[in-house]
């Protein structure tokens, strides 16, 4: 009982972060059919920039956070401009690898500028555990799922319920027709990449006080988030969020019962099984496709 509460606390927390980063994959995929495989590195970038500005340079944390997120957005724009657009324009799938390479370059640049050893991003919410139902937990661990889920649903609402969201969907479904509606497709796609990077940056800022900040913070995180995006159905915001929470819970559950040595083995087997049963993800649906 005790353990299960604790597990769900951390499971939901990490899960909502997977969901947030996965939502970043969703946003760019929905708009352009491409994703930024350097998402994991952007998670790191958010944390590293906040550390560098807030701790190393001693700026006030709010300013550091805003600038860190702006930095992430800028990186998102660069990725789109330099690593995605040139290849998409030539009808090549090499953007896939170009963004992976971009992630490698970013990781290593951070390694040599930020430093090689892991650091700790201080947070008033992650110093003293509070006791809930007999279990110690950092306040941040409660804040994370709340912020994560709220943010995710806000984005989903924008996509589903506003005209702006429909513009994004229109670009995704038929870019040429969207141009004919007066929509600036290039700028829309660039904005999607920036937004996607900001989401990853927020996730990085939120988890950094729990993890240690190092140049490798986001690598595995990015892969898991991609798995979450796929599992949820990369075209469905709701599916992606739910899949994130589910993934977090399953991961925490497996770790608690079988031990963390089996976590990846079990979780990735579950992914294959899930995709076999639902080839378009949990809530993804096959596109309208007439023969």
């Amino acid at each position: 009982m005790l353990t299960s509460i604790l597990v769900s606390g951390l499971g939901l927390g990490l899960g909502s972060m997977y969901g947030l980063v996965a939502l970043g994959f969703h946003v760019t995929y929905a708009v352009s059919g491409t994703v930024n495989f350097a998402q994991g590195s952007v998670v790191t970038l958010g944390a590293v920039l906040a550390y560098a500005l807030g701790v190393t340079l001693g700026w006030p944390m709010p300013a550091a956070i805003v600038l860190a997120l702006a930095g992430c957005a800028l990186f998102g724009l660069v990725v789109e401009r330099a690593l995605v657009r040139p290849f998409v324009a030539r009808g090549s799938d090499a953007w896939l690898l170009a963004t992976v390479a971009g992630g490698i370059v970013l990781d290593n640049t951070m390694l040599f500028t930020f430093g090689k050893e892991p650091r700790s991003l201080p947070s008033p919410l992650a110093t003293k555990p509070v006791e809930i139902l007999g279990t110690g937990i950092y306040p941040l661990q409660l804040v994370i799922p709340v912020v994560g889920i709220a943010l995710a649903f806000a984005i989903r609402t924008v996509f589903r319920r506003t005209d702006l969201g429909r513009v994004l969907l229109a670009v995704a479904q038929n870019a040429d027709a969207a141009r004919l509606m007066g929509i600036d497709v290039r700028r829309t796609v660039a904005c999607a990449f920036a937004l996607s990077a900001v989401l990853a940056g927020i996730a990085g800022l939120l988890i950094a006080p729990l993890f240690s900040v190092s140049a490798e913070l986001g690598t595995l995180f990015g892969i898991k988030a991609f798995a979450v995006a796929i599992l949820g159905g990369i075209g469905s915001a709701t599916g992606v969020i739910l899949a994130g929470l589910l993934y977090g819970l399953v991961e925490a559950g497996v770790t608690a019962t079988l031990g963390s040595t089996y976590t990846q083995l079990v979780v990735f087997s579950v992914i294959i099984l899930a995709l076999t049963l639902r080839p378009d993800g949990l809530l993804g649906r096959a596109a309208v496709n007439k023969v």
Binding site: F226, A227, I230, L231, F268, S269, I271, I272, L275
Partner: peptide
């Protein structure tokens, strides 16, 4: 991308 993920999962397994 679903196939990409499925094969990634296979590699990890």
């Amino acid at each position: 991308p679903y196939l990409a993920m499925l094969t990634i999962a296979f590699g990890f397994i």
